[in-house]
């Protein structure tokens, strides 16, 4: 099978304007994945399925990943002119100061597709798509019209992560019930306070169970 780099060039030549990036995988499995921009993802996926050499006709796994906003602090040495009194005269002197710089990398939701070929018996090729952010720009093109295997799995990703797949024929909640509001697989999801009885509660569960008990007893007293 072609390597990830070769597939990247193949897609770039076939789909004009597609922006692809190889996402390295640090684990010993070394299955690197291809990050494709949302605008050209559909065309790229169609190419991967129909290309005579690749023929990735089998979409095995679709999943979402939630990447939170990342705040990185790094110490940077900054050289800047500082006013100083040298021999009674005020002059500007360059001085190197160490500063902590905070950078916030905005989080995003990611959809991961594992592709194999049943005809050629090779794989996997891992395709990724990323949303703009985690709140309002969560739309990605649905690949269900290309591989129907994505139908239920994209619904599941929508249900648990909140990625809206445009072009999906039947995008409803699948595992949670229809009236459910939140997305339970997001990293910042707070599960509801329903600790009625927990005889062997630990740490934060214990704290919440106690808070729940306090809340319910005051409610009952009122």
């Amino acid at each position: 099978m072609k390597t990830v780099e070769e597939i990247k060039t193949a897609i770039e030549t076939a789909v004009s304007g597609a922006q692809l990036e190889i996402v390295p995988n640090g684990s010993p499995s070394a299955e690197h994945s291809l990050l494709v921009d949302a605008a050209h993802a559909f065309a790229a996926a169609k190419f991967l399925r129909d290309d005579a050499e690749l023929k990735l006709d089998f979409l095995s796994n679709v999943t979402g990943v939630d990447w939170l906003d990342k705040e990185t602090t790094e110490k940077v040495k900054v050289t800047r002119p500082v006013e100083k009194e040298v021999n009674g005269v005020k002059t500007m002197v360059d001085e190197t100061v160490e500063e902590t710089k905070k950078t916030v990398t905005p989080g995003y939701l990611e959809a991961v597709y594992h592709l194999y070929s049943m005809a050629k018996k090779h794989g996997p090729v891992i395709l990724r798509m990323r949303t703009g952010n985690r709140s309002d720009k969560v739309e990605l093109p649905s690949l269900t019209p290309i591989w129907r295997a994505a139908e239920f799995q994209e619904r599941e990703v929508f249900d648990l992560f909140g990625i809206i797949f445009t072009g999906h024929p039947d995008l409803r909640r699948i595992l949670m019930w229809d009236g459910f509001k939140d997305y339970p697989m997001r990293r910042d999801y707070v599960d509801p306070d329903d600790y009625e009885y927990e005889p062997t509660a630990h740490d934060d569960v214990l704290k919440r169970a106690q808070a729940h008990l306090a809340a319910t007893t005051t409610e009952a007293a009122q």
């Binding site: 640090g26 684990s27 010993p28 499995s29 299955e31």
Partner: peptide
């Protein structure tokens, strides 16, 4: 603690 990375086993 595995190194950062990913794996798909089937």
């Amino acid at each position: 603690k595995p190194k950062p990375g990913e794996a798909y086993g089937r």
